[in-house]
């Protein structure tokens, strides 16, 4: 591993779906990097391309979708074009993904113990006893009480929150370098969510795991992430350090998003509403994809804005970024 190289570097990633109705540019020229022990928040509304970005990194995009361009460097190795054998070695071992629905990870007909031990044994040369011990420890780590008894249970014998914790425990098993977490706490209570965020943070600090935390909840990212990428219609529209982006957003979409979160200082006051709806990605009209909902839109926005760096540490895709407050 290169000493200062980021754990993951994504450059100009393009993942498109070639459907009968046309080309869906689900991920279009997306670039970001994540260092060791860093948490990157990937935020955006439903359909903005967050999950497809995660799937692309893991080599999980299925037909009619395909990664059609860009580089994905993992520990210095370009894996965008790696073969399935190589990806299988990496998945579940060096790179793990936690899904919104834990049943994407869990096999309903296998005992938790069996699944967890298989995950360990597939990638590590250890005996069954050690594998079982690892499984047990991982369950304890995510706060599952009586892990010894729980190992023998089937997924359906757990509550939704517990099932998600088991899926997270499986992701932790082989001590991966990168974890991609796709809205894993959206369906959970704040107290359970806090427990999972606590584990994520600990992992990052203690083992130097790099993390991509996908969510549509800015408040979760605020407390957890070091930096943030805001996605809109398949593109990153704003990126920077978490405090700076939240305190001085410059892209009109980011500004709208922050304004629409209920906040303690504005109780009962109408929330800011971003007008209109998320555009359909199929055959997006030319120009800025946010054009029809943007209060700043003008003639210039009929062309497509590129990514610019208005000041140090910030990237934005807009012809008229809001700069007074941020510069």
């Amino acid at each position: 591993m290169g000493s200062n190289a980021p754990t993951l570097r994504v450059e100009d990633l393009k993942t498109h779906f070639f459907t009968k109705a046309g080309v869906v540019k689900a991920v279009d020229n997306v670039s970001f990097s994540v260092d060791r022990a860093q948490i990157l928040g990937l935020v955006g509304e439903s359909g903005s391309g967050k999950t497809v970005t995660g799937f692309s990194i893991l080599g999980l995009v299925d037909a009619p979708g395909r990664v059609v361009g860009g580089r994905i460097e993992f520990n210095g190795e370009d894996i965008a074009n790696a073969d399935e054998g190589r990806m299988q070695t990496l998945r579940g071992n060096r790179i793990a993904m936690i899904f919104q629905d834990p049943m994407m990870t869990l096999n309903p007909v296998l005992r938790v113990e069996t699944q967890m031990m298989e995950t360990v044994l597939a990638h590590q040369k250890v005996d069954r006893k050690t594998a079982r011990q690892r499984a047990r420890d991982a369950l304890g780590q995510v706060g599952i009480p009586s892990p010894d008894e729980r190992l023998a249970a089937y997924p359906h014998q757990f509550s939704g929150g517990m099932r998600q914790r088991v899926a997270i425990a499986i992701a932790l098993l082989n001590d991966p370098d990168l974890i991609i977490a796709d809205e894993p706490t959206t369906a959970l209570d704040v107290t359970i969510q806090a427990q999972i965020l606590f584990e994520a943070q600990k992992l990052c600090r203690e083992r130097g795991t790099a993390m991509i935390w996908i969510t549509h909840d800015l408040a979760v990212i605020a407390g957890l992430a070091d930096k943030v990428c805001v996605m809109y219609a398949g593109r990153i529209v704003e990126a920077g350090a978490i405090d700076e982006v939240l305190d001085h957003p410059v892209h009109p979409y980011t500004r709208g998003l922050i304004g629409s979160v209920p906040s303690r200082n504005r109780r009962g006051v109408p929330l800011y509403q971003i007008p209109g709806m998320t555009p359909a990605l199929l055959n997006l009209p030319p120009g800025c994809a946010f054009r029809e909902r943007c209060p700043q839109a003008d003639g210039a926005c009929m062309a497509e804005p590129g990514l610019s760096v208005p000041f140090d540490g910030r990237a934005v895709r807009c012809f008229h970024p809001h700069l007074e407050a941020g510069a």
């Binding site: 704040v190 969510q193 806090a194 606590f198 407390g223 957890l224 070091d226 906040s263």
Partner: peptide
């Protein structure tokens, strides 16, 4: 108190998450 401590908020950055002990 425990519940409110855990509310994620835009204003709260780089939190130190501390879960409530014990299972529901």
């Amino acid at each position: 108190k425990a519940l409110l401590r855990e509310v994620p908020r835009l204003e709260t950055r780089h939190s130190k998450f501390l879960p409530i002990e014990g299972e529901i």
